[in-house]
Design a protein around this nucleic acid. Structure first.
Lengths: 150, 150
DNA sequence: GTTTTTATTGAGATAAAGTCTCAATTAAGA
DNA sequence: TCTTAATTGAGACTTTATCTCAATAAAAAC
């Protein structure tokens, strides 16, 4: 049994919540995907396999996975929300290409460190963070006009 | 005439777009506010003054302001989107309290620097970025139970 | 293993957020 | 002032997300 499944079951037990096949399916599906998925994509794909799956369950489960730190919400340049698993607690952030939509993952100890110092200064207890850099990836930078922002 | 108004008019002219009273009202309203505002809040308040204002115009203008770098989108812990002006191009990021919703602004040269190095490594042309730290502010940290995430 | 308790689910209504169309309007250059 | 073209608002519509509640199923109690 893999790590985040174990962590998930633990979390549920701690909180007095129940595990269900739907929850595990959603977590597993997120885990298998290398892309970022929107709630709607998750819903549509998983309902093909289990036609009785409800849309509300997907939203509820994504929130739950967020709450226990197993999934991360990524806000794309156009404001759209997508999710990914935080595999084995391995944290990373994103550079998002405003032109082709590609997401490049990165890890920056320097950023994490700077953040820790900041938080201390403000008496702020950090739970998690999100660092999104918007711009143009190498491929798109070589050609093409103005991007879409905000 | 203040700086971002001037910048806005410049941008419109450059792009061959037209200025309108609605656009200036929205920009001014954002500029006067010390809080983060949702599109709906902006719409409701400005329509009290001009009952003919349309909702679509607010969304269109927010996108436009984002495009020209005068407004920034902030994604709150619950996934809700809000906006603020980027006053005089002065960039800052946020620590968001998952308990009381308070937003603390900060500037971190260390983060900006680390980011620049990263981008260079990936051949990524940075246009803007967003760094959101979620956690509990000093006030809320002293008391109260589990937060809402994702 | 069976019963009891209680969280979870799905359907569908509903709400909230955002986009689109198109005729009427208005800004800006000629 | 005239002309051109971008912008607007109304409202339909789409998408995204939440809520309600009876039925279901997981976990605990027995």
């Amino acid at each position: 049994m893999n790590d985040h499944l174990k962590a998930f079951r633990n979390y549920l037990k701690e909180q007095g919540l129940k595990n269900t096949s739907q929850r595990e399916e959603i977590l597993a599906f997120l885990g298998r995907s290398s892309r970022h998925l929107s709630p709607e994509e998750i819903f549509r794909e998983l309902r093909r396999r289990d036609p009785r799956l409800g849309r509300a369950t997907v939203f509820r489960t994504l929130r739950l996975l967020g709450d226990c730190g197993l999934a991360t919400r990524v806000t794309f340049p156009d404001g759209k929300q997508k999710f990914e698993t935080r595999l084995g607690g391995h944290h990373h952030d994103h550079m998002l290409c405003v032109h082709c939509g590609r997401a490049i993952e990165f890890v920056s100890p320097a950023v994490e460190e700077a953040q820790k110092r900041l938080a201390r200064r403000y008496g702020f207890k950090v739970l998690w963070h999100r660092h999104e850099i918007f711009g143009r990836c190498r491929r798109c930078e070589t050609a093409g006009p103005s991007p879409r922002r905000s």
